[in-house]
Design a binder for these strands. Structure first.
Lengths: 226, 226
DNA sequence: CGTCAATATCTGTGATCACTAATACATTGA
DNA sequence: TCAATGTATTAGTGATCACAGATATTGACG
């Protein structure tokens, strides 16, 4: 890693990239709700740029199926659709299981220690009801594992799915108290990884994801589906 | 459904979309080689449009990791990288296996009959050495199966991977005679589906994909890697 | 004849404008 | 009172221009 190449400015990434990343992250952590409209001009105004880079960011997100582009009307987050959400969580379970299996032998003892501290902090987040912290730590926990799979395409595919299921998370989880059963789940995953039991770790990860489908069914059956 | 709103034109999809689809298909069928440069202006000239829609198409493709956008230099197809290609084929094998397992119970007898005729035509393509036809029919064969999985996200993920591995195909396969072992492979897949043996079908699909890794290893070991 | 610097010619990026289509709302008619 | 219609607003799309950075070319000098 060498010193900064540019002489004067710190060579920021292109504006369109920054907007793209920012929006993607907002989707992942559930800042946007299903059905939300995202207009080019209003976003451009908010970000203090022209419409061009915003438009580029939105077309990219739509191309990755993270947003919908209605024919001539504004870009929007997909509406909550049972079949679609089920498909996405099914894929997540498979891919994240695969990634975990690949990762277990690769994770260093330092990385596993970090996972353990993260897991215990997440337990505290659940007790304290701080959903915001939990969501970010949950992302970090999972994706440090998936990064260790050392398969970039796999990592990217999973992150894409998180961005797709994020708005669902916003709708269902963000304003609820988290069930106690979630406690120790991530600690157990860390434990399984520590003992280098790839099958168990993958199994637990898939179980962690299955709550999504279950919570969703409970959610739609309760008549909350608008 | 009312009459066409526009008085003269048939409401074509946006130019940027058409360019995007066209380029993606070119990638899938291996028309571009690893390392190829794709400049906005030259493509715009070739397509008879302004730079704008081309630029949009290219940023979308780059966002899906189908192209690379070098810092300030033109967009390009990724160079052949053993690790990367291996990762992609690994993922393809997993995802296409999953899709096949889901698809087998869903495929109608008519669809299976179509798969059988496609398979026999592919056998003839191999005998006749018509790689071009084989490539397109191979796409149709595989993706009629994956469509029957009825999981759009899965379908899309697989198609994305095909677009990523397409240029590799262009480099390695396009100008070679196809090995005889490929014969009957797809017929066997169709047969397994017909007998509703999902496990066997998935196994054969994964085997069909594994040639990619093997051929690649043979290719790189032969010193052909530039 | 070789090396290096100046420059000309690409590249993508971002801003601005013109255009068409779709929505919202008010006006008008029955 | 309600429905149909027309208009104003707002949406994304595409073209054009200005700009900065990277490469390739060319020229001069050692």
């Amino acid at each position: 890693m060498k010193a900064s190449p540019a002489s004067k400015s710190i060579a920021q990434p292109p504006m369109s990239d920054r907007i793209y990343q920012s929006l993607k992250w907002s989707l992942i952590i559930g800042e946007y709700f299903p059905g939300s409209d995202l207009s080019i001009r209003s976003l451009a105004k908010k970000m203090g740029t022209s419409t061009m880079p915003v438009r580029e960011a939105l077309t990219r997100l739509a191309s990755e199926r993270l947003l919908l582009s209605s024919v001539k009307r504004s870009y929007k987050v997909a509406e909550l659709d049972p079949k679609r959400v089920a498909d996405q969580f099914f894929l997540r379970a498979r891919l994240e299981g695969i990634a975990t299996r690949l990762a277990v032998p690769n994770l260093t003892t330092e990385q596993i220690a970090e996972l353990e501290t993260l897991a215990s902090m997440m337990d505290k987040d659940i007790e304290g009801g701080s959903n915001e912290n939990y969501i970010v730590r949950n992302y970090n926990f999972h994706f440090s594992i998936y990064a260790a799979s050392q398969n970039e395409e796999l990592f990217w595919s999973i992150e894409r799915l998180w961005a797709q299921t994020g708005p669902y998370l916003a709708q269902v989880v963000r304003n609820q108290t988290m069930p106690d059963e979630w406690q120790v789940l991530h600690s157990n995953i860390a434990k399984a990884i520590k003992s280098r039991n790839a099958d168990l770790a993958a199994q637990l990860i898939e179980k962690d994801i299955s709550w999504g489908v279950e919570t969703f069914e409970a959610f739609t059956n309760s008549g909350a589906s608008k």
